[in-house]
Structure formats: structure tokens, C-alpha cells
Design a protein around this nucleic acid. Sequence first.
DNA 1: CGGTTAATTGAAATATATCAACCGGTGTGG
DNA 2: CCACACCGGTTGATATATTTCAATTAACCG
Lengths: 250, 250
Amino acid sequence: MSIGTKVFKPAASAQAPDMGGLAAILGANGMSGHAESRAGGRVSGFPAAGAVFAFERNQAIFSDGDPVRSFYKVTSGSVRLCKLFADGRRQIAGFCFPGEYFGLAWQGSEYALTAEAMSETTVVRFPQHCLADLDRSSAGFRSHLVSLLCGELSLAQNHLLMLGRQTVKERVATFLLMMLDRRGQDRRDSVMLDLHMGRQDIADYLGLTIETVCRTISDLKRAGILGVPGPREILVKNIRLLQATANGEA
Amino acid sequence: MSIGTKVFKPAASAQAPDMGGLAAILGANGMSGHAESRAGGRVSGFPAAGAVFAFERNQAIFSDGDPVRSFYKVTSGSVRLCKLFADGRRQIAGFCFPGEYFGLAWQGSEYALTAEAMSETTVVRFPQHCLADLDRSSAGFRSHLVSLLCGELSLAQNHLLMLGRQTVKERVATFLLMMLDRRGQDRRDSVMLDLHMGRQDIADYLGLTIETVCRTISDLKRAGILGVPGPREILVKNIRLLQATANGEA
DNA sequence: CGGTTAATTGAAATATATCAACCGGTGTGG
DNA sequence: CCACACCGGTTGATATATTTCAATTAACCG
């Protein structure tokens, strides 16, 4: 159903430490990520250093069941957070793009999700104790973290509704609009959207097959709603119709 | 696709205040509920009083979009947390049973989910400021809350996997096992499971139709895995096979 | 410019939804 | 106490959406 992830060695190359990246951990913009997950924006600064690591496309950053020792920030590239079945079935719970954090799965001692690079990706890794320290010391920190988690949860609930009750057209249109918003792009016509991911990733996020995603995008293209200049790019030609499609008015 | 919820007036009858119910808010057992949501177990006590309210079957306790003013504890009956489309489609994100809390959607100012009684239900309502107060004063409180939210999130992610990538049989079997665990019931044969909900609620949790749920339960019955003594009861006759079914080994 | 990978399209198979009838308990009124 | 109506659950037949399998085309890379 889905492509087995090639598991490369985490032969990531350590680089110069990244100072102050954590300053932004409390984005609290409620827009992004996943619990186990991402967080954009910036908030109360705090001192921290992390090592830079590089990952190749499809390389695992951490896996479901690994002990939690660190959390991460994407500096370039993109990351998917997913669950895998032994037989290869895969469900993507969310994506992380540059500036976003992931791996905040600290409640337990093990990650509950797998994080994989979707393209050549660099991340900054922070030791878990940074979070714990901050949690103890900063007054506003934890409440930011809480609202962040609430935001994640809300996103997950919308994703549930999508997988459980939306049609294929609604899902694909909703996905595209979501990606537009994520980039902070205007909801105008003729906006170019870089997906930064292949069809399989879209399919695994939407709970569909790659062929169904293709066909649906082609349908939208034929309807004049989209253009597809390249495999990972979408030109939004009629956002009004795209929104109508997302709302089942098509 | 799903039954429109009859919206009764919240003509709930206020009763004697419930003291100390909040003592248990930090169950932190990580087993239950939904962010917007439930929390069982018990932890650091703290003083709080709430009024008791009663709701009839299918009556809304709060709705998606309502301003957040309170959170709740189920004292009897059961509650579903769901998202609704204008056309009647419904996705249930989770259930709450006696002892569990819900409505902890405090990050925003509006509920992101609708809470409805699934049967005659009584709840204790606490003003939102109780949470805020606790959050400020209690050292361990917020961290409990955080781990609770992480647990909710993890549950939601498993639910995503279920809706996106599991077959119907896997979903139904997984659901039944989940309900067993929820009751703290042993995973033994010949355990009687009270569902406390109708087929439509199961269907809306699993992203299926009521007929498909029926047929699948009948299949499991025919396979000797279950007995169905009453519409809302399941007799688990062969838990081993039920687990195998949940894991796709059938 | 070949060779490899990803994307697209087509045709057939299949799972699930839809539509419709039937069943069984429960409660009410005669 | 029985008859009937009501509601939820079950089953059957058919329609349909989506997957699966297979082939083709397009993009990417050395």
C-alpha cells in the first residue's frame, strides 16, 4: 500500500552548534505541527545549543519506539511524522518545514511516531533536558507548550474528520489549501505552491493510494482549478473553486 | 450518513455542588480521552466545586464554536466528542465515560469539538478559571496536564492510522479491544463488554456506515469470536482471535 | 543521450456505501 | 393481556468509489 521506507544509517554529520534556535520553540502560533512535532513562530528566548545533523531523502531521524533523548528543529528540507505497519502500510500524521520543531514527545520515554526526512534535510538537535529545564524555570513556557499541544490536537482532530468523512476531492483540495496557509501564502489566484513532497507522501497523509491522488489532481487540472508545472509544484489558478471543492460544493 | 443530532435545550437541572471532583483531574494515566477531553485516574487533590447537570440522550453539552467557559467531569452515562458537517456527516474523535474529564480545550476561546450525551448522562461542570488557577499555583499540575495532552495526541495519532490505513475488520476489532482496555477489563475470554453506545456511534468513530459495522460484528460472531447478547453488549469469546483480527492476521 | 525513478493513465477487481426490506425488542393503549 | 407502533439493529441486492494491476509517459541524473 505504501512504499517501505529505506532505512539508512543515521550517519548524519555533526556540525557547528546552533545557538539560540530554541528561542523560537514557543511559537504558539497554533498553526503548525504535531505534538510529537512541530512548532513555528518565536517566543521567549532561552539559551541552548544544538548540533546540526544532515539526513538524506527517506532517512529516519528517529523511529517509533526509540527512547526519547532529543527534540529537533528543521533548518532546511522537510520532515514527515508517520506511523508504520509491519506490512508497509503507512499513515503520515503531519509534516515539518524549516523553522518548525518536532520530537516533543516527552510524556513517555519512547517516541510514538517515526520522523523521516522527505528530501535532503538538515536539523538542529537539542537534548531533551533543555525542555525539562525550561519547563521548570520559565513561567510562561509551559503554558505556551500547553497551548501548542492543544493546537496540535485540534489539527489532529481535523485530520480525523478528513480521513473518516471527507471525499477524495474534498481531501485533496483541503490538503492544498492547508499547504497554502502553512506557507503564509495569500489565498489568491495564480499562487505557486511548492509541495516539497512526492505523491506517495500526499497519499499517505490523505489515506489514499498514489494513483487516486494523481487522478484527483488531474481532475482539478482539467477543471481549470490548478496547473501542474512540475511534480512537486502546484499553480493555484482558481482558489474560489478550490475552496468550493474542499467544502464539498462540487 | 449520520443521524442529525437533536438539539434539546440545555435545560439541565443544577444540583448540589460536587466538591473535590477536581482532585482527580490529573489522572495522568495516559489511557483515556481527548484533549478537548477526558482524563481518568486521580492525582494531586485541589479544592473545587462544580454544579451537577443532567443531559438527555443526544443532547449537546457544548458545541463546536461555543465560547469556552467550563470543563466537565462525567459522573454517569457517557459522552461523545465529535465534529459535524453541515450536511450531517459526523466524525467522533473520542468518548468519555464516568470519572473522565472533557472540555479542556482551553488554548483557544472556543471549543473545537461538540460534546453530546450518548445516553442519560450527568456531569459536573467546573468554571474554566479553576484550571487557570491550578495552572498557576500547582507545581506538578501543569506537567500532568502536558503529559495528559501528549497522551491524547498519541491516541489521536493511532486513530488517524486506523481511519487512514486499517481495513474494516481491523478497525472494529481494534475498537472492541480498546473499549476493553478502557474499562480496565482483563483481556480474557468470556468477558462481557458494555459498549454504552449504539451502532451509529461506533460507525462515526470508525469512519464507516452503520451497516458495515453491523455486518462486521456479525462476521466476528459467525467466526465464534464474539457473542452479541444485546445491542449494546459484546461477549468476547476468543480474545486471541480478536487480537489477530485487529492485527490484520485474518 | 540512455537509464532510472516518479507520475500519469487505463482497465479490471473489490471493498464499502447505498437503498430497501425485514426483524426484534420495548413501550403504549385498547 | 394482547395488538400495534416505533426504533434500532440486521440482512440482502445493487451501485459506486477506490484500489489494484498493468502499461505508458514524463522528469531527473549521470
